[in-house]
């Protein structure tokens, strides 16, 4: 049972009775989910099941869509993220995000990482050192150290994605959301990102949406299976993949649909 496994962990994100509508269409249905700290939680499910939508709820990116309507509660470290006193930019500093397609800013490699530090008011004299540290942690420093002032858009896709991860961890978030971070990358770059994820979970809580079930099995501790906007099953990853409780989960894992 998931409760037994979760006992050993500390909850950081708690989602209760979450419903999300785009206009008339309900995209998330009554989601209950507790995400443990400093673990990798994978969200899997067929296209359109709402896993990315759920992920983007956690850093309130749906604020950008005027027709999105949300009911229910999400707390991070016990704090209600939808509360009117919650500052959304502070929340997003705490809950970083890596996107499906690498989206480096049209700036230099250095500035891509330094930008988040500047806007979040880190001391100016510390920034160069923090940039280097983040690039090292993302295993990209050696590849870019001689061209920090070159435009980030000249890097390869995999390098860009690691740069985006460096940019995200630079501002010292607690949680990193990853929205199919490898779907636009080749197998070798994917491998590097997966190794990086395993490294990062020592310091961060990671929630990763993925289409790739092998990837979920390789990198995650817990897995949530979603289908048609509902959370079907959530448990330890090995349990979901070897001995799921629900028939639907088993069918999906075995590749009967999806």
């Amino acid at each position: 049972m998931v409760q037994a496994a979760l006992v050993k962990t500390k909850p950081v994100i708690e989602i209760s009775d979450l419903n999300l509508y785009f206009g008339e269409k309900q995209v998330l249905k009554n989601i209950q989910l507790t995400i443990p700290q400093k673990m990798v939680t994978a969200m899997i499910g067929p296209s359109g099941c709402g896993k990315s939508t759920l992920l983007r709820t956690l850093n309130r990116l749906h604020d950008l869509s005027p027709d999105a309507r949300i009911t229910g509660k999400v707390t991070i470290d016990g704090q209600d993220i939808f509360h009117k006193n919650t500052l959304v930019n502070k929340l997003r500093k705490k809950v970083g995000m890596v996107f499906q397609k690498p989206n480096p800013f049209p700036k230099s490699i250095y500035d891509n990482v330094a930008y988040g530090l500047q806007i979040n008011g880190f001391p100016k004299d510390k920034i160069p050192q923090m940039v280097e540290e983040s690039l090292r942690k993302s295993y990209i420093f050696d590849e870019v150290k001689d061209k920090l002032q070159e435009p980030a858009t000249r890097l390869s896709g995999g390098q860009q994605q690691r740069l985006c991860i460096a940019r995200t961890i630079a501002v010292k978030p607690e949680i990193i959301l990853m929205d199919e971070p490898c779907s636009a990358l080749d197998p070798l770059s994917t491998l590097k990102i997966e190794e990086l994820i395993l490294e990062l979970k020592n310091d961060y809580t990671i929630v990763i949406v993925t289409h790739n079930m092998q990837q979920a099995a390789r990198v995650s501790d817990f897995t949530a299976f979603m289908y048609l906007g509902e959370l079907i099953e959530f448990d330890e990853t090995h349990k979901i993949f070897n001995n799921p409780e629900k028939q639907l989960t088993e069918n999906y894992i075995k590749g009967h649909f999806g």
Binding site: L61, L64, N89, F105, Y115, I119, N120, C164
Partner: peptide, 12 residues
């Protein structure tokens, strides 16, 4: 995606 990238870092 550029806007989202910046917002996700905590930019207003």
């Amino acid at each position: 995606s550029m806007r989202e990238g910046a917002l996700a870092l905590g930019a207003t």
